[in-house]
């Protein structure tokens, strides 16, 4: 019974981790595929295996307050799932940084009026010293 309970808890934690930041990713992917976009993505690979070690995405757009609002809401909906949260609101400028530990993810949103910038960084595993 105890084992079953541990398994169930582990499963719930795993599912929660998998779905963390999902709404932000979905919104990001929707916008990247939709059209008016300034988008950058870079990955760092293990030189030997080609496996992705780190992925960075940057998405910026202007003139769409509704979209900025949707992104802020998506961030806020993840607030209970994050391991770290920093929020600054100053006049019309909103900046939120959300951090997940496993795997390491740092997501930042900056909204200034209708200007929106979303920056995501995912580190799948720490780099070996020799591959740095």
């Amino acid at each position: 019974m105890k084992r079953l309970l541990i398994f169930a808890v582990s499963l719930i934690v795993a599912i929660a981790e998998c779905s963390a930041q999902q709404s932000i990713d979905e919104l990001l992917n929707r916008e990247i595929d939709s059209g008016t976009t300034v988008f950058k993505m870079a990955v760092k690979r293990d030189p030997e295996t080609g496996e992705i070690i780190k992925r960075v995405k940057e998405f910026t757009t202007t003139g769409n307050k509704q979209l900025a609002k949707e992104f802020v809401e998506a961030f806020e909906s993840e607030r209970d799932n994050v391991d770290g949260w920093e929020e600054n609101r100053n006049g019309g400028v909103v900046q939120i940084t959300a951090v997940w530990v496993n795997p390491k993810r740092i997501y930042t949103i900056t909204v200034a009026g209708s200007a929106l910038s979303v920056f995501t960084q995912t580190i799948y595993r720490e780099e070996d010293k020799k591959s740095k």
């Binding site: 992917n29 990247i32 059209g35 300034v38 988008f39 993505m41 870079a42 990955v43």
Partner: peptide
């Protein structure tokens, strides 16, 4: 496919599908 560095600037009406990258 696989790309290490992607840069997209789209200000028109083009649909840019990159979700199958990497």
């Amino acid at each position: 496919g696989t790309v290490d560095d992607v840069e997209i600037v789209s200000t028109g009406r083009a649909k840019i599908l990159t979700s199958k990258l990497n």
